[in-house]
Computed example of a mutant assay.
Amino acid sequence: MKATPLDESDVIVLQPTVFSDDRGYFFESYNAQTFNELVGPDIHFVQDNQSRSTQGVLRGLHYQVNNPQGKLVRVLEGEIFDVAVDLRKSKPTFGQWVGARLSSTEQNQIWIPEGFAHGFLVLSSHAVVAYKTTDYWSPKDERYLLWNDPAIGIEWPLTMEPLLSAKDQNASPLSQTETY
């Protein structure tokens, strides 16, 4: 597995070794020992999530304040543009974003450590996204960062007006959000 850091944010794109032949392909999508060698100290996942969305759906930017979640995100079907915004005040990358295209054809993944808001835009006709989290979902701790906050300046590859949930439509800009 190859690990490519995105800038100095601690967010890492992971590319597994894929073994292909005329029957199809095989790859190891997760191996705790390899993951911890590439990413850092012992990270333990406690929950797996999956979503299916149609083209133009923008989910995010979501995070939890008291139970922050690290996320290992991958696409099972389709293609997305995945984004992480650093909300750690102690880091020089606070308020900055990084993004990467993830797809089922590339089989790449992204590791987003605790302390980031996370979201994605579906680029293909639909996408099935799966991700592991380091803490459980806590509705009372969930917060929403405005996806198009000019102070952050995310360059979403939009080809249409994004489809947003009510929570994402009413999200707060960085200047009004709780951070770490």
Rank of each mutant, 00 (worst) to 15 (best):
Asp7Arg: 15
Lys2Gly: 13
Gln50Asp: 12
Gly40Ile: 09
Asn170Cys: 11
Asp10Phe: 15
Gln33Phe: 06
Phe116Arg: 00
Ile43Gly: 07
Ser124Ala: 07
Leu146His: 07
Val65Tyr: 10
Ser125Met: 10
Gly60Ile: 04
Ser165Asn: 10
Asn148Leu: 09
Lys2Pro: 13
Gly40Tyr: 11
Ser103Ile: 01
Thr4Ile: 14
Met1Ile: 09
Glu178Phe: 11
Asp135Pro: 10
Ile43Arg: 05
Ile43Gln: 08
Pro162Asp: 07
Val65Ile: 13
Tyr131Arg: 01
Lys89Arg: 10
Thr93Ile: 04
Glu155Tyr: 07
His62Pro: 08
Val73Lys: 00
Pro139Asn: 05
Pro113Tyr: 03
Thr105Cys: 12
Leu61Lys: 04
Ser124Glu: 00
Leu121Thr: 07
Arg88Ile: 07
Lys140Ser: 08
Pro139Thr: 06
Gln15Glu: 15
Leu72Tyr: 04
Val65Ser: 11
Asp135Leu: 05
Ala171Tyr: 05
Asn36Trp: 08
Tyr131Ala: 04
Val39Asp: 03
Leu164Ala: 06
Thr159Gly: 14
Glu155Phe: 09
Leu6Thr: 12
Trp156Asp: 12
Asp86Pro: 09
Ser172Arg: 05
Leu164Trp: 03
Tyr25His: 15
Asn148Tyr: 04
Thr93Arg: 01
Phe120Glu: 13
Asn67His: 08
Ser104Phe: 02
Trp137Val: 07
Ser125Asp: 13
Pro68Cys: 11
Ile110Leu: 08
Asp86Lys: 01
Lys2Ile: 15
Phe120Pro: 13
Asp22Ser: 14
Ser9Gln: 06
Asn170Arg: 14
Ile80Glu: 01
Glu8Ala: 10
Pro150Tyr: 05
Asn49Met: 02
Val75Ala: 01
Lys167His: 11
Tyr25Asn: 15
Ala171Asp: 03
Arg59Pro: 05
Leu123Ile: 07
Thr134Arg: 04
Val13Trp: 14
Ser172Ala: 13
Ser175Ala: 14
Asp135Thr: 14
Gly78Ile: 00
Glu37His: 05
Leu6Glu: 11
Ser51Pro: 15
Ala117Gly: 06
Phe81Trp: 09
Gly40Lys: 11
Leu145Gly: 00
Ile80Pro: 02
Asp22Phe: 11
Asp149Asn: 13
Ser9Ala: 15
Tyr63Val: 03
Val46Tyr: 12
Leu6Gln: 14
Leu76Met: 11
Glu37Leu: 08
Leu76Gln: 13
Thr133Asn: 02
Asp7Val: 15
Leu61Trp: 03
Trp97Gly: 05
Pro68Met: 12
Leu38Glu: 00
Ser138Glu: 13
His126Leu: 09
Ala171Thr: 06
Pro139Arg: 05
Phe35Gly: 08
Arg23Pro: 14
Val83Met: 03
Arg143Ala: 10
Arg143Asp: 06
Pro139Cys: 09
